[in-house]
Design a protein around this nucleic acid. Structure first.
Lengths: 335, 335
DNA sequence: CTGAAAGCGCTAACAC
DNA sequence: GTGTTAGCGCTTTCAG
């Protein structure tokens, strides 16, 4: 890596002259600027980012902490964050908390010591269960803004980007009721999470408003054999004619299990689930999906953070952006 | 962020005393060390990473450039990299090339100017097609080691971690031949990639060796409607009794399409595909899968890089690690 | 127009 | 034992 010092030496000028020339300062003579720029070009000079960061006390880097990168939704948000960050001239340092509070804390700590200008994060499961928020508050009070997305800690004052989870399942369930479905089950493998709870409540509300049946919830746990659990549930509850799923995997398995049991989808059973476009290709008929617009969420979060970083002095009020889901109707439902 | 300077001032000692005390230098008096550490603890002092990086000319950060984070295999490798890097005391900066040569170049350039100590990357599709390697060579000659995984540029001298793609499909196809399948098709949506080509060749070899049929390849392109293409292929080629798939999506769609057309899997048709465990849950019967051990690949790549970083002076020979796939037999095949 | 010097936060060789 | 100083690469004020 060539430095200003080396360029200066070779050109027989001072370091500051080189620096100014490269930064198009008006102070430097035209001729000198030309000479400097040519040599810099030749040697492919790029200012050292660490030195710049140290000097300017900003890193142009965003710390991203997500609980699980193998979750397709979270990966997609990360994609959105990366793309927007790159566009705005920021890099991202990614840490994976693995749903662990300790790991989340450690990553926050580590990156807070000068590696990043701020954070975008999705709260880990353990953190949500234990309702710990001190580490977030501490980070913010150190002058590092945080933007939370999807799973957020409501008691932390910071910018947030969330999904209208409640409305999404409420509307999806309403849709199935409109199809005159009489026995709709809600399937979830994320009932520990804030968003999982919201989704369940949306379903509950729609069912209770309608009054035709009682809410019926099938909870899937990590240790379960998902296929076996769903299939045997359908076998025992033979009158199920509708499924609302809080996650994509359960929805896919639900359709395939129903077909395996000889049912026709959507003739005998309609299925709606939170999923992405590629997921919906994994069933025939294609899954009617609740889309969360993950990339938009990532982009929004990034914009919120960068905006705050660039207006730190203004001390703006915190904002919460709600990204509306949309219901993409495919062939696993009638209407 | 509290600095050494502030601690020194408050303790009425010099900056270097504080620094030495915190670094357990033998030079400093016991009493002083204690005072310093207590205050540092109180203020939660952490050395500034940028300053350290600048001083020591190493960032303890790895640049990771991957073509597409929405690809489950790549996301999983990233997960493996992150976990191993964290374990070894490194952070990762992630850039997504989006399969674009230009983006890949830009990321490499940007991070090479002092942000990272080295790179782990998977070559983008465009880069492979155009067979460009200058940017890699340049980076390496600047003193930044590169480790390539999965899709590699063979003409670049660097450490590599690859998969035995050829053997994997060769063996998988052999397996179907052992089941006495007579009309086996190879389905791929990645035939542009080096790994896609290797997988096809493995299939070809097994088929040709056997001599019962000619190789038969169905290529899926991004713009295609994958479901439609596979389903109509099966309709037109009604005697297909075996599928080897180079990607998970095609395998899943193949099974579900076959079932949709009234065939029994694996009675009438066996299917094997590259896929992960979670993918194999998306069909009933579960997909017999070729597992690539993505996390292991990520961990190996990280170890190679860190090892090289820590032994830069030794100038060791480059190494290529081949991570063997394994064939996980589920119920979409007979044997 | 150009250069010297200070300083970002830290470490380490070298005084005292 | 503790402090002074130089220097990592850069920007920027202030002198010349």
């Amino acid at each position: 890596m060539v430095t200003l010092k080396q360029l200066a030496k070779e050109l027989n000028v001072s370091i500051s002259t080189v620096s100014k020339a490269l930064n198009n300062s008006e102070e430097i003579g035209e001729e000198t600027v030309k000479r400097v720029k040519e040599l810099a070009e030749l040697y492919n000079y790029k200012p050292n980012r660490m030195a710049l960061s140290l000097k300017q006390n900003k890193t142009k880097t965003i710390g991203v902490i997500i609980p699980n990168i193998l979750n397709h939704f979270l990966a997609k948000v990360l994609f959105g964050i990366e793309r927007e960050a790159t566009k705005l001239g920021y890099n991202i340092i990614t840490c994976i908390s693995n749903e662990s509070l300790e790991t989340e804390k450690a990553s926050l700590q580590l990156l807070a010591s000068g590696s990043v200008d701020g954070f975008i994060l999705c709260v880990s499961e353990e953190t949500q269960i234990k309702n710990e928020i001190d580490h977030f508050k501490k980070t913010i009070s150190q002058g590092l803004p945080i933007v939370m997305f999807d799973r957020v800690a409501h008691d932390v004052m910071c910018d947030k980007v969330i999904v209208d989870d409640f409305d999404a399942t409420y509307n999806a369930t309403k849709n199935l009721l409109l199809e005159n479905r009489k026995n709709i089950v809600f399937i979830s493998n994320i009932d520990d999470l804030s968003v999982g709870k919201l989704r369940e409540r949306g379903y509950n509300k729609a069912i209770l408003e309608n009054g035709g049946q009682d809410p019926l919830v099938l909870r899937i746990f990590k240790k379960d054999d998902h296929q076996k659990k769903i299939k045997s549930f359908f076998r025992k509850n033979n009158t199920i004619d509708g499924v609302v799923s809080a996650d994509s995997s359960s929805a896919i398995i639900a359709i395939n299990s129903a077909i395996n049991l000889g049912k026709k989808v959507p003739k005998h059973m309609s299925v709606i689930g939170f999923a992405s476009k590629s997921d919906s290709n994994h069933t025939l008929p294609r899954l009617t999906t609740i889309r969360q617009h993950a990339k938009v969420i990532g982009a929004n979060a990034t914009q919120l953070l960068v905006n705050r970083l660039q207006n730190m002095h203004l001390n703006e009020d915190v904002r919460t952006i709600i990204v509306k889901t949309s219901l993409v109707k495919n062939k696993s439902t009638l209407l």
